[in-house]
């Protein structure tokens, strides 16, 4: 029975959807980062679920999870650096107001 796997995947899908909604709807850079964190958490969940229920012998999957966690940390560090710089120069981290970043 694959119930466990399907449940986990659907929960991951819900987190993914929430993350997408947040990343698109928020105007604040930090809030957008929160949306991205949720999306990455959904990815983590999928990875662990696939490892656990489909390939428990492939320990590389766990390594991959570690890499995604690293990506999360890097995303935070870079995101905050950008936010600080913008805040210093413009007094805002609102993406609505970042007109010069629009194509």
């Amino acid at each position: 029975m694959t119930l466990e796997l399907v449940v986990t995947l659907i929960i991951a899908a819900a987190m993914f959807g929430t993350g997408i909604y947040g990343a698109l709807s928020q105007t604040n850079l930090v809030m957008i980062m929160m949306g991205i964190e949720l999306i990455l958490a959904a990815a983590l969940l999928n990875l662990v679920a696939f490892w656990r229920y489909l390939h428990p012998d492939a320990i590389e999957a766990q390594m991959f999870v570690l890499i995604v966690m690293t990506v999360m940390a890097v995303e935070m560090a870079v995101g905050f650096a950008v936010a600080i710089t913008r805040f210093r120069s413009r007094g805002s981290v609102e993406m609505e107001e970042a007109q010069e970043l629009k194509g």
Binding site: I84, G91, S92, E94, E96, E97
Partner: peptide, 24 residues
């Protein structure tokens, strides 16, 4: 291109005192 009713953070932070590190 701003949505009507959008709350501008630039306006909010405009003229607020700045810290020694340059951040308002």
């Amino acid at each position: 291109g701003l949505e009507p009713g959008f709350m501008s953070m630039i306006e909010m932070t405009e003229g607020t005192p700045r810290s020694s590190d340059g951040l308002q």
